[in-house]
Design a protein around this nucleic acid. Structure first.
Lengths: 370, 370
DNA sequence: ACCCTCTAAAAAAACGGTTTATCGTTGCGT
DNA sequence: ACGCAACGATAAACCGTTTTTTTAGAGGGT
């Protein structure tokens, strides 16, 4: 009790005291202390009630009602920073991606957003454009921003993160990271079997940029599927992409070069739809037709794939679902970090047949098929 | 001094006291108190030095050096929440958009991101899909998250915001909001003059979804430009779009309907590139050619516009620049809210001529031109 | 009368910074 | 010898919550 007397003493001499007494009815949002003065209850009680804390079970319904009503009336909103400071939870996550690309990024993020916002989470986006310094800085900056977890799109984890992390299409070995990936073996089989059944034997392949994690897995998938079908993967019919950001241009140029070098193929399996669009243009520019002379098969099934001329036959990734699934796992991981999550979630691709693939021509290249 | 004695007394009996003394060298990030113990300086001093506060001028270079060195050595990072709580600044902004659409959104956001991240700002994205409840809730939720400002893409301001706000393509009347908009009058003139010079007189027009702010301004631009060129805007040749989200489908169906109704036109001016892609497909499906039978002109110049077959003639919006410009103004507004910013920044469009427009056919529709 | 449990609420500590007001020295002018 | 300013630094207030610890009182059992 000696303490409480002293506290009173101090309170009396505190310079801010007088103002404190009548900050009620000022403009600006009301805070917990002001609300407690109005209600003549302690901040504790109000906080317990509003947070529906288990400790609030001893508080009579009558008091609870009063609290709720006052909170509603004064539009009380707990201060985000104060709450986060205390709880050390930010209710936001960090999304790292190579870029804000057309097609791929937006589809995945639609799924992510759908799930996150429903769970009252917001997200920060940062694009690293494969620049080492940015790939290094952004995770650090986001940790400083106290994100509760990371979602990596197509991006390898730079550091062993302290935070819960889900990687989409990133094939991360890092311990504790859950990977959402496509079954690239199956994807390649779907594409190659489709071409095979159409009579294609001479097939050109496109290898994605080295830096993209999917590239390696896709390529292995292709090699395996080709072996199974006894299709030869000829080095001289292979295109190596080098992209820093995606545009059809990325496919156009290498395809043009390939066509100048060889026409000894009847189909090409592209790394994605964006590059396939560029490839088709290159084929047209060379005076050939798709699919009469060369069949083209894409990857991803971005929205506009169905509206190309010719519309794209493609291997669909369930991008939206990969996004929402990834978000869901991440939130579960955040809620209970000890929960064991699988290292890998494998999604199934789907072949979408449209106009850009057709029967292999009887004779190669130039002449139209009979 | 009686007070200080008491405080000591209290400190001695405080249960946490003993632990406090030796939290140094624990794992986890170091905080200001621990750093101050190491340096044998007050937290104040360290804070002043690290923030390069004007009050720190009285601190000798020697001490400053010590502080910097220790901060570096121990990798001290100020806690984001604690700092924000005190300063009531979050260094983040909220971005509101109808959806994460292909093409448009990503281009604008590339510009936004480029500018923001350089200035050490991060951003939250939220898509409202034109749902009234979401359009209402998100601004509120983001205010609770203490964003320092709003960036509205294509979105009217729901409430008179307390926060600095910049609207891109949203034509906001709300006081204090700076609008970044395109010169739609000029845009329409560029498109129509181009068609006029190619001999087109019977032109179909596409009116965007009512809900999109640009729609009204674009339409007025079209009416004015048409009047100037003495081109008649025939109601029976007008398509009204109704879109909740963008895909070429949005243009495909209405165009199909129009073609069934009338072929009494030689060109169409589309609301954007996405719908133009759908329009072209509808024209092809009707057995007609672009541009031989009908010329198509798009809007925006999204990345893939150049790679369509035929490639799109379109009115380019400097989307990326609109994004970075918007971000820049917003940050200036945040730094100094009293600073008078223009109500409107008007950007200039540019006509990009490609393959989807050509000379008007001599006879209408069916027969190819001589 | 005593101990114990339970209810209802409040006090105080904690989160980790920033900012304001204050304090002891020292040196200088008068 | 005294007042005053400059210096170098710090204690304490403050931001607004959540959570742990206390308290006061009522009721029950022995």
């Amino acid at each position: 009790m000696i303490f409480s007397r002293l506290r009173e003493e101090r309170a009396k001499t505190s310079p801010m005291n007088k103002e404190k007494q009548d900050t009620r009815s000022e403009n600006g949002p009301i805070n917990l202390r002001q609300l407690s003065e109005v209600l003549r209850l302690s901040q504790t009680t109000i906080s317990l009630v509003l947070n529906d804390s288990p400790a609030a079970k001893s508080i009579p319904a009558h008091t609870r009602e009063r609290v709720f009503e006052a909170a509603r009336k004064f539009q009380y909103r707990p201060n985000y920073f104060a709450r986060s400071l205390r709880r050390s939870k930010s209710m936001s996550i960090g999304v790292l991606a190579p870029d804000l690309s057309e097609g791929y990024f937006t589809l995945v993020m639609q799924g992510v957003e759908e799930y996150l916002l429903r769970a009252h989470y917001f997200y920060f986006t940062a694009s690293h454009y494969w620049q080492p310094d940015l790939m290094n800085d952004y995770p650090r900056l986001l940790v400083e921003r106290a994100v509760d977890g990371f979602l990596l799109l197509n991006t390898p984890a730079a550091v062993e993160s302290v935070l819960p992390t889900v990687a989409i299409s990133a094939h991360n070995d890092t311990k504790g990271v859950t990977n959402v990936v496509l079954d690239h073996r199956m994807a390649s089989e779907l594409a190659l079997e489709h071409l095979y059944q159409l009579g294609h034997r001479q097939i050109a392949f496109m290898k994605g940029p080295e830096i993209i994690p999917d590239t390696e897995y896709r390529w292995n998938g292709i090699l395996q599927a080709a072996k199974k079908l006894k299709i030869e993967v000829k080095p001289e019919l292979c295109i190596q992409l080098s992209a820093d950001s995606w545009s059809p241009e990325v496919g156009y140029h290498p395809m043009k070069t390939l066509l100048e070098r060889s026409r000894d193929f009847t189909a090409i399996f592209c790394f994605n739809d964006i590059s396939a669009i560029g490839v088709i243009r290159a084929i047209h520019d060379a005076g050939l037709s798709v699919p009469e002379d060369i069949s083209v098969i894409g990857f991803d099934d971005i929205i506009s794939a169905a509206y190309q001329k010719p519309s794209l036959t493609t291997v669909r990734q369930p991008l939206r679902k990969m996004g929402s699934e990834g978000a869901q796992i991440l939130l579960e991981l955040i809620a209970d970090p000890k929960k064991e999550q699988p290292t890998e979630i494998v999604m199934q691709p789907e072949l979408i047949v449209r106009e850009s693939t057709g029967q292999a021509p009887v004779a190669l290249a130039r002449p139209k098929r009979a």
